[in-house]
Structure formats: C-alpha cells, structure tokens
Computed example of a mutant assay.
Amino acid sequence: MLLEKLCNSIGPTGYEGDTRNLIKDELKIMNLEFSIDNMGNILVHKKGKNDKSNLKVMLSAHMDECGLIITSYNSDGTLKFSTLGSMNINSLPCKTVLIGKHKIRGVIGLKPIHLQNKKERTHSISLNDLCIDIGSYSKSETKSIIDLGDFAEFNIEFEKFSDTIIKSKALNDRLGCSILIEMLKEDYNCDLYAAFNVQENIGQRGVFASNYSVKPDIFVSIDTVNANDLVDIDINEGAPVFLGRGPVIPFKAGISMLDRSNVKCIRSIAEQSDIVYQRIAGTRKEGQSTSVQLTGSNMKILSVLIPCRYMNSIVSMCDLNDYENTIKLLKKYIKSF
C-alpha cells in the first residue's frame, strides 16, 4: 500500500529526501514528468485533455513530518535536542527514536517519577527536562557517533487497527501526498499541477515557492485537521470533527477566507454523489492558505482536510474511509471543470 510506504519513509522538516525519493519513484512508474526546485519541492504538471482550456488547478500537500534535531552533547553522553515543527512535548518522554541516516537508536529520557520531587512531578514537561540516550557512557563516545544537526525521527510503524482505522507517524501530511499521486492517475480537462512541498511545519515555506512558480487559478490545499470527537466540545469552540464522517470542507482557515463559490461547488458535488463530508465554518489553523495568499497571486483557494486524531504528537490515527472519500470527491470536483 502506497500510503503505508509513505508513512514509514523518513522525512522530518528539512530532511525530506527519503520521502521525496519514494514519490519520485512512483511518478517515474506513472511516466509523469516532474521538476524539483531549489528548496526540494516536487512539482508535477499534467496537461489537460482540452487544449482550449487555460484553467490551471493546483493540488498541494506537504512531505515533511514533525521530528527532532540534535543541538548539543551532555557530559554523560546523552543528547539535547530541539523540535522540527510544533508538537506536543508531553508525548515525547520514553519514546524510541532513530537518529541520522544510519538510524542510530535512542530513547528520549526523563527523570524517573520515583526520583522526582513534588515540584518536578507537577510542572509541565519542557525540552530542558528531556534528553536522548543512545547507550553511550561519555560525551566523546557520543561525538564519534552523532553529529550536531543530525535529525531524529520517531520509531513508529504504520499499523492497521481494523479494516479502516490506521495509526502511524506522519499522517500529517503523507495522507495528502498519497492522495495527490492517486489524483495523477486520471486525466482531466484542466491543466493539473500537483505540488509535494517541503518545510510546511516551520512556516509553510515550501508552498511559497511552488505556488509562485505556477500561479494557479485555483489552489486546493489537501491536508489534515484535528479530529476532536473523543473530548467534550464547548459549543463556543466550534463544531466537532469526527473520524469516519468524511473530509472536512471549511469556509475559513485560520485568518484566511476561502473562496465561497468553490466551497459551495465541491459541497454540492459531494451531496449529489452521496459522498459523506463534514461542514464546519472554519479551522483554527490556516495551514497553507495564508502562505499562498501572501504570494500575491490572484487565485481562488479551497481546503479539503482529512480528520486525524492526536495530530502534532508522535503518532496519529485516521479512518481510511475518509481517505477514500477525499479521493472520490476531489476527482469529481476536478472533472467538473
């Protein structure tokens, strides 16, 4: 399964090479031409069947996942680190990681609870409380194995919990990358561009470059959104998002207003085709939407989001039905042009 391969590939922010190579191999099998810009974004252009159509539609997802970067050595041989992207620090202690291209194994260490004082047991965990232990006994030994600036990824494999529920690292946004590849398997009347972007987790940097290169008429962000169906939702916090009830199609993403005509169009297509989807007013985070607006291009923007539980922690869950329904809906939407 392509999605499983993508999720198991290594691609922390700024170190997306392994994931990029996997996507390149898939595109070559499909005989699709693509380019890679100086930032590392992959850009695919599939010419439309209708030579008279000048409409350019761009689908965008990001390759990078949250990860860690080694920042310094401790005298006892352990390593200090920082995060690559925003993540839940409380999910890090006692997790295994793979460091650098040689995948050196380590454990994120935290002072054992029975050795903590009262203050330590009650305060929130910070990165200063954590270190990575690779089993080294000295700083010099660690320096001979690990370089400063090496990345660390979480040692978590893709796994099915049932016929439809999966758990994995990097669902945000290998789901989107997999959907882009599925979309490229069919022909459309419009000119279709697919952008596999880098460095989304540290300011949506990659999408600036890819969007500016294409200057599309319609930009569609394919990403994930927090599913909050396991917690009590305050009505003032907005509508809940559920696993298994289809992709989320909002009118607003963070501070960005999405194109209402395209939102209504894709929602109408879903209803006419009996494809389940979730209607919400907006999401807290803008994702790629604000970034593409800042390029100054005159385009219409749409977001199609796949619900995931436990986003921005080391492991997430999603429902494959939502993934499949997103593909079905996007194909019908693009073929409507």
Rank of each mutant, 00 (worst) to 15 (best):
M1E: 14
L2V: 03
E4I: 06
E4G: 07
E4M: 10
E4Y: 07
L6V: 04
I10E: 09
T13C: 11
G14L: 10
D18C: 14
R20T: 12
R20F: 07
L22W: 06
K28R: 14
N31E: 13
S35V: 14
N38H: 12
K47I: 13
L55A: 06
L55Q: 11
K56D: 13
M58Q: 11
M58V: 01
I69R: 00
I70M: 00
S72A: 11
Y73A: 03
N74E: 13
D76C: 03
L79I: 04
S82L: 04
T83G: 04
G85T: 04
G85Y: 03
S86V: 11
L92Y: 11
C94I: 13
V97P: 03
L98E: 14
I99L: 10
K103H: 15
K103P: 11
G106S: 06
I108N: 06
G109N: 08
L110F: 06
K111W: 04
P112A: 04
I113C: 08
Q116R: 09
K118M: 11
K119F: 11
H123V: 12
S124I: 07
I125E: 01
L127R: 00
N128E: 11
L130P: 00
I132A: 01
Y137G: 12
S138K: 06
S140A: 12
E141I: 08
D147P: 09
D147H: 13
G149H: 05
F151I: 09
E157V: 11
F158K: 04
F158M: 05
E159D: 13
K160I: 08
F161V: 11
D163M: 10
T164D: 09
L171V: 00
D173C: 06
G176Q: 03
L180T: 00
L184T: 01
E186N: 14
D187V: 03
Y188I: 00
Y193D: 09
A194Y: 05
A194N: 08
F196Q: 04
N201R: 11
R205Q: 15
G206A: 05
V207Q: 02
S210N: 07
S213F: 12
V214H: 07
K215Q: 13
F219A: 07
V220E: 01
S221A: 15
S221L: 04
S221Y: 02
I222H: 01
T224M: 05
T224N: 03
N226M: 12
A227W: 02
D229C: 01
D232K: 13
E237V: 05
A239I: 12
A239M: 13
P240A: 09
G246R: 11
I249Y: 00
P250Y: 09
P250F: 10
F251R: 12
A253N: 13
G254E: 07
M257I: 14
R267L: 04
A270Q: 00
I275M: 02
G282H: 00
R284Q: 14
G287S: 03
G287F: 01
S289I: 04
S289C: 15
S291R: 02
G296T: 12
L302R: 03
L305I: 08
P307H: 10
C308G: 10
M311C: 10
M311V: 13
M317A: 15
D319W: 05
D319A: 06
L320C: 05
N321Y: 09
T326S: 15
L329Q: 09
L330T: 08
L330K: 09
K331V: 10
K332G: 07
K335S: 15
